[in-house]
Design a protein around this nucleic acid. Structure first.
Lengths: 222, 222
DNA sequence: CGTTGATTTGATTAGATTCAACATATGTGG
DNA sequence: CCACATATGTTGAATCTAATCAAATCAACG
């Protein structure tokens, strides 16, 4: 809970990484750390957002759900990613929910303080703009995918994305450690676990992938 | 083509609207105006983006298409909206195509110049952040809609959005002037024109809407 | 008034969801 | 370490929704 840990946290975030020491120290003094257990809710859609969250360690899923309780996972975040930032500048209410995937440690930075810092630091706003722009672009990619691709294409795209994010190169392909259950993965691409499971089996039969237990998939070369 | 027109254009854009006169004049001197005819391509996905585009008058659709030629319309833009901005900060290649819907007049601002201006104006970056953040939020809303809703729900949501954007209040409901053909509208919600047509008919039968010719729909009260 | 393009409707098909059964892991207490 | 209980994942069959292809209707315009 001391400043040493905080520093690590702030420094891990690319958009803060090359701020000068004075500003880093300022941020450190404002950050609070908290641990969340697997499945624990970090915040719920509709709440008033007062913080920006930074992942010190672990995974977090941001999702939305409708009245019938179906959920769609907007993003899966890892160490060094930040979230809750849509509440800066405009919105009061959080538009999605955040939940810990596995145990994780989260740093919280009061929104008001970050707003002040942003206003006084062109450098920082520029980086933030860059980060959010890139997110918008990724989100538009997903829109296109949901609108135009069928379940098999979306499944393959999901695997390729996971591979890009955190795939491990092997001599016969790229090994993926699946961060979520089938159900969670299905929610990432707007389908059901049964459909995902079928498509994975089909891809394996075609020789494109190899399903290794329930938490690993190898995308084969060629 | 003179500065008088340019000023109108720059002033129409909310994020520029309350810059000081010096900056407005700077922008005016950099802006070039061009007219596009209905259906004319403004830019194509994959091109290198060198400008930010501002709509002086008319409508523009931003869309993406896949190999099979299916298109998904990301956004429909109107007077005062700007686009092409994803290319600031990072991306070189444009990730979507832009096409004139009806005749329109577009102002173009060189990307490099805007980048300079942004770096020197915290106020402007703040507004831009706010604008892009709000866009990201809207895009996430669409994702949720595509992932979780069926064709009928998406159709109703589309009508409600159009009504919010540009609906005209009548004594018996809200009248919408449809900006696109059935096919275009269908592409906005990731479905086909036939399905959209069926869903509109169904909504009319249920008494929720009244289809008035091919370019107008009334959303009835209650 | 006829031609053209847009829209609606109909019939069929393809794809995904649902619900159910089965299989495979994971975890717990004896 | 095993047996059982619980989770998670896979497969099958029926159903349903939306896409596709084709035909019919409607609207706009010269």
């Amino acid at each position: 809970m001391d400043s040493c840990k905080h520093e690590a946290c702030v420094r891990k975030v690319p958009i803060f990484s090359d701020l000068d020491n004075e500003k880093i120290n300022k941020l450190n003094s404002l950050v609070k750390q908290r641990k969340f257990k697997n499945g624990e809710l970090i915040y719920l859609e509709g709440e008033i957002g007062k913080n920006i969250y930074i992942i010190e360690s672990g995974l977090v899923k941001l999702y939305r759900s409708n009245e019938e309780g179906n959920q769609y996972i907007l993003r899966l975040l890892k160490e060094g990613d930040f979230f809750g930032e849509l509440v800066l500048f405009k919105e009061e209410q959080l538009s999605s929910s955040a939940e810990a995937v596995g145990d994780c440690t989260i740093c919280m930075l009061p929104k008001d303080e970050l707003e002040k810092l942003i206003k006084s630091s062109p450098e920082l706003s520029y980086k933030l703009l860059s980060a959010i722009t890139s997110r918008l672009n990724k989100t538009e990619n997903k829109l296109q995918s949901l609108a135009l691709e069928d379940a098999k294409e979306k499944t393959m795209r999901l695997l390729l994305e996971l591979a890009k994010e955190s795939g491990i190169k092997k001599e016969n392909g790229i090994l993926i450690n699946l961060p979520l259950s089938r159900d969670g993965l299905a929610n990432l691409i707007g389908t059901t676990q049964e459909t995902l499971s079928r498509k994975l089996s089909a891809l394996q039969q075609e020789g494109l992938i190899s399903i290794q237990g329930q938490k690993k998939i190898l995308i084969k070369n060629d």
